[in-house]
Structure formats: structure tokens, C-alpha cells
Amino acid sequence: MTSRKIGYASPEQTAEKRSRQRWLSILAKADIADLESLFNNLPSKPDWTVIRAPEVGMIMARGRAGGTGQRFNLGEVTVTRCAVRLDYGATGHGYVMGRNRRHAELVAVVDAMMLIPSRREALESALIAPLAMRQTQHHQQVARKVAATKVDFFTMVRGD
């Protein structure tokens, strides 16, 4: 919908960006308790340095008139952000809604770990995929409850 200036990106860069968007979204939307326990169960955890300490702030949420038209400011949402550097190099960023500093830090750590090609596959199956599955299941559960309230219209047959 928006005409963003993407510049010239190779197909590989575009694919890499998409995968990163996907895991960052899954991590940000994850329940912090789920994320924490899956992270704790990882066989090896890296050491990291916090390069931007978890910070609470806001992002102004925008809407569009009529859903598709002129942009306007709806109101702000609380957000926590954090950046870390793993001891073996990669830098990760965490942006999560709400004020949970630990959540933002864990997202940044996992983001950095995912950027290391040799770790990615194992991390995907140990952490990202289970989180994604829980989120899909949650949405599915809600969507089935909602579906039970869908109206079935029927026509009364006149008896004349």
C-alpha cells in the first residue's frame, strides 16, 4: 500500500529481510513466559553485551480515515526497545509492545543469534517455530469461538 523507498536490494537481501521480519514479529508477539522457558531450554546460550539498555517509550499508532484514506494519529502505544551484541559479533534489536524490559532484551538476543547462519536452523526449530505455532493456535482458538457467533440466515416459508 505504501510506496516505500527500498532502493536496490538483491533477491537474497530481500529474502533475508523477510525472514528477519518474520522472526522479529513472532518474538515480539510471543508470551514472555513462553519465550523465557524456550530460551532457558536452549542447549547453548551465548554471552552478550547490552549496547542499548532496555528503554521504555511510545510509538504513535496511526490509522487511515475510512481505513484506506488520509493518515491520522490514533494514540500512542507503550514500547520497549533494546539492542545487544553477542560476544561473537552479531548485533540484535528488540522492539516489543508494552513495558517488559526482559522481553525486549530476549528478543534482541535471539535476533542476534538468528543472524548467525550456523545457529539459525537449530534456533528456528527449538524456539521460533514453537512460538509461531502457539500464536497460530491461539488465533485459531479465538477464531473458532468467534465463528460460533456467525449468523445463519434462513427464510421463513409462507404457509398460504
Binding site: 500500500m1 505504501t2 528503554e55 521504555v56 517509550g57 511510545m58 510509538i59 504513535m60 499508532a61 496511526r62 490509522g63 487511515r64 481505513g67 493518515r71 494519529n73 490514533l74 500512542e76 502505544v77 507503550t78 514500547v79 526497545r81
Partner: peptide, 12 residues
């Protein structure tokens, strides 16, 4: 609170 920025328009 500081404002970090502005969201993309919500896609309802």
C-alpha cells in the same frame, strides 16, 4: 515517556 517514532498506518 519519550516517543520513539510513528507506526505504519494500522491495516484494519
Amino acid at each position: 515517556l519519550p516517543r520513539f517514532g510513528i507506526s505504519e498506518p494500522l491495516n484494519t
